[in-house]
Amino acid sequence: MRTHRLTFRFPVPGGERVGGAWEVAWQGCRVMGILNATPDSFSDGGRHYALQSALETAKHMQRAGVFMLDIGGESTRPGSEPVDTATELDRILPVIHALKDAGILLSVDTMKPEVAYAALNAGAHLINDVTGLRNPEMLRVCADAGAAACIMHMQGEPRTMQHNPAYGDVVAEVHGFLREQGAKAVSDGVPSVILDPGIGFGKTKEHNLALLRGTRALTLGDHPVLIAASRKRLIDYLASVPEAADRDPGSLAIHLHAARQGAALVRAHAAAEHVQALRVQDALMAEG
């Protein structure tokens, strides 16, 4: 089973000092639990909008064995409208402050360098950028803070990304972008990166399936790979499940496949169920 690593230039939960940095290492596939502090996320909008509800969910996921929490204050569902910086910070900072000493890695899902800067200063450890660190200022924020970053591929922007997305060779183009951005980020001072092909972000059903089937090729590279298909429309296309909240079985199927292909992380709403399923799959695949 492959060992994956993330490096930070400041102390992090579960990290060990290696020279002038802190390294978090794990084997196999772990779970990034989704904590949306928004009123309009596509499957759980409003559920964690109140601080107490968000904290209770976070504690439940932590007890279940989730590896890290991904806190978001702006929906990136197809067709979503952006929110201003102040609104996004009002949603996420109380959650970060409440969880910064909880002993779990905290990721912040944001496209705004100003939000990333404030979140890292508040106690977050990792920035999950759906725009793939295309903004030089976002890259600089992560590099200056010594924070790891997740680089995701998205064609277009959330409001328009599903309007006729097109590729010549989706696997080659997405993997090429991720490898190039990953190398650039590291060369510019970001200590460590995760690569995410962006399932559902500017892709058709066929594009998503090609990327999922091609996961192994991306995982053979130098950086951990994240697959994030939880409750996405792809599952409706494949299994006729119109309500996002009913798509956890399909999410598990995709994410177990990704783990078998070498993914280091899966991002999930039903985080506890994913932890359980991955543990069982690991046991079944272990040599006797």
Rank of each mutant, 00 (worst) to 15 (best):
R5Y: 02
R9L: 11
P13N: 00
P13T: 05
G15P: 08
G15Q: 08
E16F: 01
V18K: 08
G20I: 05
G20S: 08
A21I: 04
W22E: 07
E23H: 12
A25C: 11
Q27S: 15
G28L: 06
R30D: 04
L35C: 03
L35A: 03
N36V: 09
D40R: 03
S41E: 01
S41K: 06
F42P: 01
D44A: 09
Y49A: 11
S53E: 14
S53A: 15
A54T: 04
L55D: 04
M61Y: 14
R63S: 12
A64D: 05
V66M: 02
I71F: 05
E74N: 01
S75V: 10
S75I: 06
E81R: 14
V83M: 02
D84C: 12
T85V: 15
I92T: 07
L93H: 06
L93C: 05
P94C: 00
V95A: 03
I96F: 04
L99M: 10
G103C: 04
I104D: 00
L106R: 03
T110K: 02
V115Y: 09
A116S: 07
A116I: 09
L120V: 04
A122C: 06
A122T: 11
A122L: 04
L126N: 05
N128V: 07
D129W: 12
L133V: 07
L133K: 00
P136W: 01
M138K: 06
L139D: 01
L139V: 08
R140N: 10
V141K: 02
D144S: 11
A147R: 12
M154Y: 09
Q155D: 09
Q155S: 10
Q155R: 14
T160V: 13
Q162Y: 09
H175Y: 14
F177I: 11
L178P: 10
E180L: 11
Q181E: 09
G182N: 10
V186G: 00
D188W: 12
V190L: 00
P191M: 03
S192W: 10
L195S: 01
P197F: 03
K203V: 13
L209R: 10
L209I: 15
A210D: 14
L211S: 05
R213L: 14
T219R: 02
L220W: 12
L220N: 13
G221H: 10
H223K: 01
P224H: 04
A228V: 12
S230M: 03
R233T: 14
D236Q: 13
Y237C: 05
L238I: 11
E243I: 11
E243K: 14
E243H: 15
A244D: 09
R247C: 05
D248C: 02
P249A: 02
L252F: 13
I254K: 00
A259T: 13
G262S: 06
R267Y: 09
A268W: 08
A270E: 13
A270S: 13
E273I: 03
L278A: 10
Q281C: 07
L284Q: 10
M285K: 12
M285V: 13
A286E: 14
G288Q: 13
